[in-house]
Every structure is written in C-alpha cells, then in structure tokens.
Design a protein around this nucleic acid. Structure first.
Length: 449
DNA sequence: CTAGGGTTAG
C-alpha cells in the first residue's frame, strides 16, 4: 500500500477544518486520536488546526490544553484560541489573550478590531485601531464598515478620506454603507468617483450601485444601470447581482424586466425569490407573490424570517386571510422561526385590512414582546379603513409615545374622527400637531415614465 | 499542497 494514501501533516488541517465547519465533534475527535497515533500531534499546523477545531466546537478546555502544552506557537495558534473564546461568548478571556500575545503583526490587530466591529462594539474597536502600530487598508475598511452599520457615515467618510491606499473593498464598504443608511445620492457619487479613477468595479460594488438606484425609484436611471451592469459584469450568474437587479426593476416600476431577469436565472435562490415576490406585492399582485412562494417551497428552498415577512405582507395586500394565517403558523411549527414584531405587524395588517379588528387587537396583545410602532401603526391604519375610533384611540395613545414625531399617525387619527363627525376631536389633534411643530408631508406618487 | 483578516442582495 502506498504511504500517500494515509492522511499526513498536510491533509489533517484540511480535514479538521471541514469537521469544524460541520461541527462534527466526534469525527474530529477520532481524527485527533489518529493524529496522536501517527505522532503528528506536535506539528505546528496540525496542532493549530486542533486548537481551532475544538474552539469552533466550543470545547475550550480541550482547546486550551492543546495550546498550553504547545512548544512552539505562532500568531495563528494564538488567534485560533482567541477565536474560540470569542465565539464561545468569553470576550474577556479572548481580549486577555490578545493583550498577552508576544508578536502582533497588523493582521492580528485587524482580526481583533473586526471582532469588536461585528459585535457592534465600536468603542473598543476604535481604541485598538488608534493603538495599533501600523494600520493598513483592512484596518480602515473594518472600521468604516463598523461606522456604516452603526449609521455614522460621517465618521466612516472621515476615515475613508484619510485612507491613502483605497482598494475595491474600501470603496465597496463606502458605497454599501451609504446604501444601508438610505443615502443613494452619496452612494452613487462614491461609485462614480471610483469609476472615474479607472478602478474596475467588481460584483460587490455593482450590487451597491444597483441597490442605490433601487432606492431612487427612477425608471430612467434603472434602465441605464441595467445595461451598464450587463456590459461590465463578468459573472452573469451571480445571484447577488440578479437579486439586486430584480429588486431595482421592481422598485422602479419595471415588473416586466424584473420577471424576465427572474425567469432567465439558472439557479434561483432565496433572495431572488424574495425580491420578485416583494416586487409583485408592491405592484398589487399579492396572489402572484404567494404563488411564487409555493413554487419556492416546492423547489426545496428553505424560507427564512425575511421570506415569511414578504409572503405575509403579500397575503395582506391580496386579502388572503386564510393563507396568511396558515403561513404564520407554518413558520412557527414547521420552520421553527420565532415570530418577530415585524411578522406580527404583517398579521395585524392582514387581519385589520380584512376587517377583523378584534382579532388583530387580540393578536397584538398576545405578543410576547412589547409591540413596536409598526404593529400599532398597522392597527391604526385598519381602524382608519374600517372607522373604529375607539380602538384607534388606544393605538394612537401608544403611537404618540413611540413615535411622537410621525405626522402620518396624527393625520390618520384626525381622519377617523372626521369620518365620525367628531370635529372637536379633529381640532384637538390638529392642535397637538402644531404644538409639536409637525406638518403633513405631502403624499408622493411615483409616475413611471 | 496544510491553520488566522476587511466589502455584497430580499
């Protein structure tokens, strides 16, 4: 038998990585005994992979023991153990080890910064960023992403301007950041600045560009972006690109193009299904969206919490009360998804729109969490539609606390009173509005050209 | 040839 058929110190790290990815603890443990048997336990790469494997399986005692008895460690061994502690929820031990590390190149700092950024702890991330001896593009991009996710685009921009070696990652982080914070004009400007510097856009930054144009809701712009992307996108099967294009076309009123793109996809994934369903939903074809949801299930694609939000909203718009109820139950029983306030908002909207105001209110009161403004807002809208001033007053009293500056709520409430000829109450609401210096934002109707 | 880092869609 040829010796090469046995796993060696090159293949064990690879095998352990795969076990870690699948949380295959017992399989990895058998590999561990094989490693000991073959006398490969002291190999730097093999030992580090074991530390990483036990850490990913949250076996910190085993991981720590292998680390402590290690003769020669490098930064990767340290990082693997730190990562294990961090992912096991022990940020204190992780940070303690990081501070004790003997050799810290830029990369180790970047990993630690990114951990804090991903945890939303920008204070600690920034401290490390300021402390580290040499910052590179990765350090800047992690911080930029952190600020963007926290909604602080001013700080993100400030760091971006200081960054001399901007690469495609940092440009992308800025474009996506503006998109995430609903600043499509800034997103577009940054993209064009990048493009004018002759930097070749990749798929990721194109997704950002498309999403920005989706937020504009301008069909002329969408048409331009559509052809622009088709011209320069090398990977035509990228599902991210497709989902973004479908979303943009649907949002800009071009359902035909959205449907064409969806149909021409080779591998439709969850997000592309959601994009097209959302498109049909906003264009008042809720039934069509529900049909697509069924087709998606038949294809074996697992719906997640967002997919259920989309389908419940579609049921609501189409008046499919029975189906909506069924999906709401299916989500909990069949897919083990805990109903979020957004799901409840969809259900209150569904029941309320169809005139089941009592049922909507009962459902709201059965919520395990405190209902947010979206849930109360859906109830208020239903009261407006079905002229129920009594229930509307309950919703309004919560809404005036949760979102006191939302003019729409006051307008709905005053309309409900007006429909009941309660003009004294109407004027009381108007006074409240002017006291809070609110005015109705004129309705905005898109006209598709 | 093997172990650790930053950007993406609904």
């Amino acid at each position: 038998m040829r010796r090469s058929l046995f796993p060696d110190h090159f293949s064990f790290p690879c095998l352990l990585k795969s076990c870690a990815a699948h949380s295959a603890l017992s399989l990895g443990a058998s590999l561990h005994s094989a490693i000991v048997h073959l006398g490969l336990e002291d190999d730097l790469f093999v030992r580090t992979s074991l530390i990483d494997f036990y850490g990913k399986c949250r076996q910190m005692d085993a991981s720590r023991k292998l680390f402590d008895t290690m003769l020669h460690k490098n930064e990767v061994s340290w990082t693997a153990l730190i990562d294990g502690y961090w992912n096991s929820g022990d940020g204190i031990s992780a940070r303690d080890l990081f501070d004790k590390m003997p050799h810290r190149n830029a990369i180790t700092w970047n990993i630690m910064i990114d951990r804090y950024v991903k945890a939303g702890d920008l204070i600690n991330a920034r401290k490390l960023f300021d402390e580290m001896p040499e910052r590179n593009t990765v350090s800047f991009t992690s911080m930029i992403d952190g600020y963007a996710k926290a909604g602080d685009m001013a700080s993100a921009r400030f760091l971006f301007e200081q960054l001399s070696d901007k690469d495609i990652f940092s440009w992308s982080a800025m474009v996506s950041g503006y998109v995430q914070n609903c600043q499509p004009i800034e997103a577009l400007k940054i993209f064009l600045e990048m493009y004018n510097r002759k930097i070749k856009p990749d798929e990721v930054v194109l997704v950002g560009l498309i999403s920005a144009c989706s937020q504009f809701g301008r069909l002329s712009l969408a048409k331009w972006v559509n052809s622009f992307v088709q011209q320069i996108s090398f990977d035509a099967d990228n599902p991210h690109i497709y989902a973004a294009l479908i979303d943009m076309n649907a949002n800009c009123g071009n359902m035909e193009e959205a449907a064409f793109l969806f149909d021409s996809m080779k591998n439709r994934d969850l997000v592309s299904y959601c994009s097209i369903m959302q498109g049909y939903s906003i264009h008042m074809s809720g039934a069509k969206a529900v049909e697509l949801f069924e087709r998606m299930l038949k294809e074996g694609i697992m719906p997640d919490e967002v997919a259920f939000t989309v389908v419940l909203a579609a049921c609501s718009k189409a008046g499919l009360v029975k189906e909506g109820n069924e999906y709401f139950n299916l989500m909990k029983t069949e897919y083990g998804i805990v109903a979020s306030p957004d799901h409840y908002a969809c259900m209150v909207d569904l029941l309320g729109r169809a005139g089941f105001l009592k049922e909507a209110y009962d459902l709201l009161r059965s919520m395990p969490e405190e209902p947010h403004a979206g849930v109360w807002g859906a109830l208020l809208a239903a009261c407006n539609r079905h002229s129920n001033a009594e229930l509307a007053e309950i919703a309004m009293s919560r809404l005036s606390e949760l979102e006191p500056r939302n003019a729409g709520n006051y307008v709905s409430m005053s309309n409900i009173y007006a429909a009941d000829d309660r003009w004294m109450d109407v004027s009381r609401i108007r006074t409240q509005m002017s006291c809070r210096a609110l005015r109705k934002i004129p309705g905005c109707t898109w006209i598709y050209s």
